[in-house]
């Protein structure tokens, strides 16, 4: 048995050291908002935050989460930036199939948390690890700018 801190709560689970956080959290703990897209850290569908930094949970073993704070999409609305990002996503109508979008929201939240007015090149850099096969990129860019404006307006 091991313990991880997920979304502000302690969870006990039985999982081998090398099990990626993605599967531990989806299959064992039952939080299914985080998605599986590639299993190789290539697509960003599985993006979570570890101590506020975006990580690819499909290649992060659960042993690396020891003593860290993990946040998933299920709790990101409690973060003031995350909430604004979600609102902007809905307002701009970003999602198509939506499968990649939890990962996109997590990456965008991480970006805006340390850079509240990113330039396009900074958006490219921060978001290039997140594939959207439906091709919602122009709206992702727009929604990040929308959320950024909201954050500044609210500050």
């Amino acid at each position: 048995m091991r313990t991880i801190r997920l979304n502000g709560e302690e969870h006990r689970l039985d999982a081998p050291d090398d099990m990626p956080l993605l599967w531990a959290i989806r299959d064992i703990l039952g939080f299914t908002g985080t998605k599986f897209g590639c299993g190789m850290g290539l697509c960003g569908a599985c993006t979570m935050h570890m101590d506020g930094q975006p990580i690819r949970s499909c290649v992060t073993p659960i042993s690396a989460a020891e003593g860290r704070e993990i946040t998933t999409i299920e709790a990101i609305s409690k973060d003031s930036v995350g909430e604004k990002v979600q609102q902007a996503w809905v307002k701009v109508g970003v999602p198509q199939c939506g499968y990649c979008q939890c990962g996109q929201v997590m990456s965008a939240t991480a970006l805006l948390s340390h850079n509240s007015s990113p330039k396009d090149s900074e958006i490219d850099e921060a978001m290039s690890g997140n594939i959207c096969r439906c091709g919602t990129y122009s709206r992702i860019r727009k929604a990040i700018h929308t959320a950024s404006a909201e954050l500044k307006g609210g500050a």
Partner: peptide, 10 residues
């Protein structure tokens, strides 16, 4: 959108 909010909140 019928699903937008559900999608962005997982």
């Amino acid at each position: 959108s019928a699903d937008g909010e559900d999608i962005v909140s997982g």
